[in-house]
Amino acid sequence: MNLDIAEGEFFALLGPSGSGKTTCLRLIAGFEQPTSGSVVIFGEDATRVPPYRRPVNTVFQDYALFPHLNILDNVAYGLMVRGEKKAARRQASEEALSLVALAGFGGRKPSELSGGQRQRVALARALVLKPKVLLLDEPLGALDLKLREQMQTELKALQRRLGITFIFVTHDQGEALSMADRVAVFDRGHIQQIGAPQNVYDRPETPFVADFVGSSNVLPAHLVAQLIGETAPASLRPEQIHLTSADGKLSGKVIGSAFLGAATRLELDVEGNSLSVLLPKAASVPELDSTVHLTWDKDALHVMRGPDV
């Protein structure tokens, strides 16, 4: 597989656990070495370069703050092993701490901080070295929902301000779509699709991507052949399907419905395939076991021709 990431880009590696996204990140960081292939960072072959010589820094999933050092010494660690003078170290670290809104926390121990604060320290510790690439391994996974949303905004703003490349590993497709400039979707060790979030969402290339990114419906090839004469599976987003009177493109039986607040999701049985439809709040919800007729805009049905098909 091949993955090119541009300078200054916010890039997300998205996939379920065990899909190879973290391994990919560890290869870039240098914690693991490829059995074949190469890692090139800004035009230089880094395949045989140990992690401590790569212009890349990492924010770990468990933050990996050194428990025996206080916050300031944690942030200054990279500068210390580099041999910088104490005064310079101190100044740079305090600047980095104020960058993540933790000025004045330098004297505390990691165990005295909250999860969100530790996460910021991990960020400051990596950024103080002014890396060309920042790797983030599920950095928001341990935070609660509200904090996670706040950090998403902050991270995005930070990346824009600093202009360095962020490579971000996540299993949360919402997180990947909202933050990244581009997304690579991983499954079982392979990249399924690379592209801008909008593109991946609207035009999935494989059934896996269609299902994983935004739970799209995947219509089997024979059904697609019946509809538009092409023998390939196609994706059809639940929110792009409308109920219509008799002359729909497909019809199905209602086998379940769930009220989601802003909308209602209908589960349908269409010739033995299950299909979901998202109804806007205003729409009336058909009864269980009733037959409904479906239609959609011409562009909504997206035929998939990805490598996995």
Partner: peptide, 20 residues
């Protein structure tokens, strides 16, 4: 990950041994 973090921040094996 502490060892990895140390090496990621630029410390060699010996520095990691000593400082972490």
């Amino acid at each position: 990950s502490l060892v990895e973090a140390s090496m990621d921040l630029g410390a060699t094996y010996f520095q990691t041994l000593r400082f972490v």
